[in-house]
Amino acid sequence: MNLQKVLLPPVWFLLSIILMVGLHLVLPVRQLFFPPVTYLGIGAIALGITVALFCDYLFRQKNTTIKPFQESSYLVREGIFQYSRNPIYLGMITVLTGLWLYLGSLTPVIIIPVFAWLIQEMFVKEEEQMLEAKFGEEYREYKATVRRWI
């Protein structure tokens, strides 16, 4: 069984949220942020969700798949994709960062770089290979002008 084909990014995202809350409740170590600073986390969560929903809208508008490992019919370069090749994953990281700020304790933050690394290694690299195989020079030009993350 190929783990990356079964556990897609939304599952890893949900597991990360559960782990962050669990670490906060069981092993908070130290409270770093307090209200009103913790309320900034709500804004970051809202921003991350908005980015992901806007990306979903762009994919639907161009009638191409948003699902990893499915062949795209269109290379989305509009909107936020002008600034990041992976804004959906960036939105997920923004939500996790917002959750960390909202929780305010130290230990949940360790999940964020682990999630980013896992997504890059399990999904982004293979998705990039697929896009390059499908779109060739158009994707190579895009990759040369737009960063992977930000």
Rank of each mutant, 00 (worst) to 15 (best):
L19S: 14
R30D: 07
Y89I: 10
G43D: 07
C55K: 05
T107D: 01
V76T: 09
L53H: 07
F34K: 12
G22V: 06
W100F: 13
T38R: 14
S73E: 12
L27M: 11
C55R: 03
L101H: 00
R60Y: 02
F69C: 10
F115R: 08
L32W: 15
S73I: 03
L96R: 05
T64N: 05
I111H: 04
L90G: 12
F115T: 09
V76C: 12
L40C: 11
L32P: 00
L90F: 15
Y39E: 08
Y83H: 12
V51S: 07
N86C: 11
F54N: 10
P35M: 09
M20S: 05
I45P: 00
N63I: 01
V109D: 00
G48L: 10
F33E: 06
S105M: 07
L96F: 02
T65S: 14
G79D: 10
I18C: 05
F69A: 10
G79I: 05
R60D: 10
G91I: 12
L32E: 02
G22I: 09
L58N: 07
I88S: 08
V114D: 03
V114S: 06
I111W: 03
H24N: 15
Y83P: 02
V76W: 08
F54H: 12
L101M: 13
A46R: 03
F34T: 15
S105H: 10
T97L: 15
A46E: 02
G43W: 06
Y89Q: 03
